[in-house]
């Protein structure tokens, strides 16, 4: 998989995770929903880390 694609996936997952987390906390305070946000963010960070490791 090309590095640019991995970075794009990572950024999208990170942003989506952040939005879910903020919405979860501000709007309905559901723990499960917040956990989904954290999971998405973790996936995003993992992808970005993977892309950085490939380039070095």
């Amino acid at each position: 998989m090309k590095r640019g694609f991995v970075v794009a996936i990572g950024l999208v997952a990170l942003v989506l995770g952040l939005i879910i987390l903020v919405r979860g906390i501000v709007e309905h305070g559901s723990l499960l929903y917040d956990l989904f946000g954290v999971l998405f963010m973790a996936l995003g960070v993992a992808r970005l880390y993977d892309a950085r490791r490939r380039s070095s």
Binding site: L16, I19, I20, R23, E27, H28, S30, L32, Y33, F36
Partner: peptide, 12 residues
């Protein structure tokens, strides 16, 4: 699915 869950879904 992505936009729905991220911007509108209400688990409650």
């Amino acid at each position: 699915v992505i936009f729905g869950f991220v911007f509108a879904w209400d688990p409650n």
